[in-house]
Design a protein around this nucleic acid. Structure first.
Length: 560
RNA sequence: UGGGGCGUAGCCAAGCGGUAAGGCAACGGGUUUUGAUCCCGUGAUUCGCAGGUUCGAAUCCUGCCGCCCCAGCCA
């Protein structure tokens, strides 16, 4: 285990700490506040914390940082547990809450008071802000800063007893109001909040602040490496101050790494819930959401998410990672195991004029062209078929090797057909194609290897199963929507397109929870909420790579 | 203008004084009954910039520039 090369600076530190004997065992924690759903950014933290411990046979706690009742909710704790499990990690018996330590935290606060390192301040929130100074000017001491230990103890105990109203007093650390680090200008330790807590009920009228609760919780759990994101970098001196003055048995070390930002998405909880409230998406698990719940419903495999963050790496540099990177991981893990099927998203009718009316053949199609072990299936074939509208062009460029008037194309796993006649409606829209098939070219027959440039997918009209298919695209048109003043202005209005597709019959039997490749189109996944055996609903997980679409796009750009 | 961080290819990222790994993307080519997959091949005379130290610098020093974070009784 220790001979494996460390892959990033945090693993290097951990490796050294193990080598030097500083720690016999690595203990980490993933500490979400249960005030929202976990998103792609959290995936990074989860994989890092659980990963680093697993690699060294250490342990990881799942700890709910529940020190701010009112914002937190049981719905979120359940969702978080489900998401972490789904991602593939297990905290075993190590499920804790910052609120589990409220008694110990309270005792530590009294110790601080007794040491003369904390005091009860009776300034209002506004006054405290004024006294704090600014980034360039030092703060001033509160007039209550020199209260005696006895007074402070008395006041704090009465705060705990519920004698004061919200906001009347606050317990502060006594550090340095002139520190250039704002976090050291007598940070608040406890505030009064007469609200019930989702885990401790009405037991407490006062609640500890993040810095205090987090540091001491880490110490109580004997966390060796407390891994967090860059914005906490200048909280580290405060983190260490608590450890220095309180001298707990265990001394955790905080190390910061950069957040993972995905291009074209937002992760701010406020904005994510606004998307839901405004009806732009349907909920936290909308398949367009960057939440774990959303990505799971979309059909992204957990392994793809793990692979993606592993490739992104752990560093201190701000990241804005391209979608293509995530999509690559998704395609890579879906490629081998997903069975292939045929489905037509935007149907165009084809009539094979020389094919006997009423005849049905059963074509044998491979479930995976690169893996014969996955077997074959029967696909019914008849005189009338559906093909993709995009697979026909009346006036096609020479590079278009699909169906065009007078041209030939192979129907996958079936015959080669020729387009003889284009049928249009009064408005001039193509509504139907009359084609003829070449009986000598049936898949598997001796003559079947006749070369034609293109192969397209199809579904027998008579046997087709209708299904709702949801085609998702990015939610935003701007690579960094976080930077936009108003995210509404950068919303992608076409992030969802719903079509009624024609499926080959075998697709009606696809089990829920299993991804499938619709050949030439992409990977699809039965929707966990709306899919039903007699009314299938599929989500498009991701398209296939499409070099034709790329060419078309370039041609379009060349014209304009 | 105070403090804390970060700058290696379009996006990520190795590198830790000995002469710029790798992945994604892009671009060529081969295989292919998915324009998919797979396979080959192509990118940095240079590491934000400018000096300095050194036989030798992305790595050490100095200065400058750019970007991010901090003034919650949020986390």
């Amino acid at each position: 285990m220790s001979d494996a090369a460390p892959r990033d600076f945090i693993r290097q530190i951990i490796h050294e700490d193990l080598e030097s004997g500083k720690h016999g065992e690595i203990v980490t924690r993933f500490p979400p506040e249960p005030n929202g759903y976990l998103h792609i950014g959290h995936v990074m933290s989860i994989c890092l914390n659980f990963g680093v411990a697993a690699e060294t046979r250490g342990r990881t706690f799942l700890r709910f940082d529940d020190t701010n009742p009112g914002k937190e909710d049981e719905e979120f704790v359940n969702a978080i547990e489900a998401d972490v499990h789904w991602l593939g990690f297990d905290w075993e018996e190590r499920l804790t809450h910052a609120s589990d330590y409220f008694d110990a935290l309270y005792a530590a606060a009294e110790q601080l008071i007794e040491k003369g390192l904390a005091y009860v301040d009776s300034l209002s929130a506004d006054e405290i802000r004024e006294y704090r100074g600014t980034l360039t000017e030092p703060g001033r001491n509160s007039p209550y800063r020199d209260r005696s230990v006895e007074d402070n103890l008395d006041l704090f105990r009465r705060m705990r007893a519920g004698e004061f109203a919200d906001g009347e007093h606050v317990l502060r650390a006594k550090i340095d109001m002139a520190s250039p680090n704002m976090n050291l200008r007598d940070p608040a330790l406890y505030r009064i909040r007469h609200v019930s807590h989702q885990h401790t009920g009405d037991a407490w009228p006062i609640y500890p602040m993040y810095d205090f609760a987090h540091t001491m919780s880490d110490a109580f759990e004997a966390i060796t490496h407390s891994l967090c994101t860059l914005e906490f970098e200048d909280h580290r001196p405060l983190y260490n101050w608590f450890l220095d003055v309180l001298e707990p048995e265990h001394r955790p070390r905080q190390i910061e790494f950069s957040r993972l930002n995905l291009a074209y998405t937002i992760t701010s909880k406020r904005k994510l819930s606004a998307l839901i409230d405004e009806g732009i998406v349907t909920g936290w698990d909308d398949p367009r959401m960057p939440t774990i719940a959303g990505m799971r419903r979309r059909g992204y495999p957990a392994a793809a998410l793990r692979d993606f963050v592993a490739r992104a790496g752990v560093t201190k540099k701000d990241k804005l990672i391209e979608m293509g990177m995530l999509e690559n991981s998704v395609r890579e893990v879906l490629g081998d195991p997903s069975p292939r099927r045929m489905a037509v998203l935007k149907p165009l009718k084809v009539v094979l004029t020389n094919y006997p009316e009423g005849q049905v053949e059963h074509m044998t199609a491979m479930n995976h062209p690169n893996n014969p072990d996955m077997g074959t299936r029967d696909v019914p074939f008849s005189r009338e078929l559906w093909i993709e509208q995009d697979d026909f062009m009346e006036e096609a460029p020479r590079k278009f090797f699909r169906l065009k008037p007078g041209g030939e194309v192979r129907l996958r796993s079936a015959y080669i057909i020729r387009c003889d006649e284009v049928i249009k409606d009064a408005a001039g829209n193509v509504v139907e194609l009359h084609c003829s098939y070449d009986p000598e070219t049936k898949s598997g027959m001796p003559q079947s290897d006749r070369k034609v440039k293109g192969t397209i997918h199809w579904v027998s009209a008579e046997h087709a199963v209708d299904a709702e298919v949801r085609l998702y695209d990015r939610l935003f048109n701007e690579a960094n929507p976080n930077a936009a003043e108003d995210y509404h202005s950068v919303l992608n209005p076409n992030s969802l397109e719903v079509v009624t597709a024609k499926l080959e019959p075998a697709l009606a039997e696809l089990p829920a929870g299993e991804a499938v490749q619709f050949e030439r189109l992409g990977y699809f996944f039965p929707d966990s909420r709306d899919d039903a055996p007699d009314a299938r609903v599929f989500n498009r997980i991701v398209t296939l790579r499409d070099s034709w679409a790329k060419l078309e796009k370039q041609a379009l750009q060349g014209q304009s």
